[in-house]
């Protein structure tokens, strides 16, 4: 079983964001980066399949981006990936989902992956597109927003999360692209011995030009901070005083303390 897991490295969402000098993306300076949350579920599911098959699977962890993304690839390898692929691209912010999916498709096309995992969305761009476009480009079956996954031979039975608590059960044959939703599994923390093992694993690097031949189809014209609606009254300071202040507000503005 050949498995590809596509991961993105994204800023910690608790960061304070600033717009960059061009005004079209966020300023990357002073940001801490980590693996896209949804992609952790993707890596975990791939590793679980390998365990289910008694090790008879080979997992490639791929990420497109600048040098920093190697950290996320290494985390995926420490979680159980067999090999890392870094597609080096210093212009990641300008790429649209079509280009990212085309790049991954060009890498994957000759390699006959049985199963490709992506997150359902990236936390920064949040396009919810790369996985489904990739499936279309490779002619693979595509199942999105999975919260359940079961492999039997070459047949997958999966649960898709719909709105309002309803789920759909779907079944499909490999090869397939699947996109992972929060709660699909419980992603493991890499253990120290497994972190040590990463050094012995293969980490390949390619310039993006090896795979990217497509122009972008959408552009970000502008990025900006949302207008503060200024509804919230902000309280700061000493905890005990804050508690008193808050209780006074609740007494005045709500009926729950009466």
């Amino acid at each position: 079983m050949k498995i590809l897991v596509c991961i993105k490295q994204v800023p910690d969402m608790e960061s304070r964001f600033k717009v960059n000098a061009d005004g079209v993306w966020y300023d990357e300076r002073d940001l801490a980066f980590r693996m896209n949350e949804y992609d952790e579920y993707a890596v975990e599911q791939a590793v679980r399949i390998k365990e289910q098959l008694g090790g008879a699977a080979d997992i490639t962890i791929l990420s497109i981006g600048p040098a920093r993304v190697v950290e996320a690839i290494k985390k995926g390898m420490a979680m159980g990936g067999d090999r890392g692929v870094h597609v080096k691209d210093d212009s990641l912010a300008q790429r649209d989902p079509w280009q990212l999916a085309s790049t991954i498709a060009a890498f994957a096309r000759s390699k006959n992956f049985d199963l490709i995992f992506t997150g359902m969305q990236s936390q920064d761009r949040g396009s919810t597109q790369v996985g489904a476009i990739l499936a279309e480009l490779l002619g693979y079956a595509c199942a999105t927003t999975l919260i359940g996954f079961e492999l039997n031979g070459d047949v997958v039975t999966a649960r898709r999360e719909l709105e309002g608590g309803v789920k759909a059960i779907v079944r499909f044959r490999l090869p397939a692209v699947v996109t992972c939703q929060l709660g699909l599994n419980t992603p493991r923390y890499p253990t120290l011995p497994n972190i040590m093992k990463v050094r012995q694993k293969e980490l390949l690097a390619f310039p993006v030009a090896d795979f990217l031949t497509e122009e972008s189809l959408t552009i970000t014209e502008k990025m900006y901070l949302p207008e503060k609606k200024g509804r919230a009254r902000v309280l700061e300071g000493d905890v005990s005083q804050l508690a008193d202040q808050l209780l006074a507000i609740l007494k005045e503005k709500t009926t729950v303390l009466r």
């Binding site: 079509w98 919810t128 279309e136 999105t144």
Partner: peptide, 24 residues
């Protein structure tokens, strides 16, 4: 709509038309 139906189908439609997609 950006829903389990829309985000599933829209990228596949856009990719077959080779056209742009803007989400959510």
């Amino acid at each position: 709509v950006h829903s389990s139906y829309g985000w599933d189908l829209a990228p596949q439609v856009a990719a077959s038309l080779r056209c742009a997609q803007v989400s959510e």
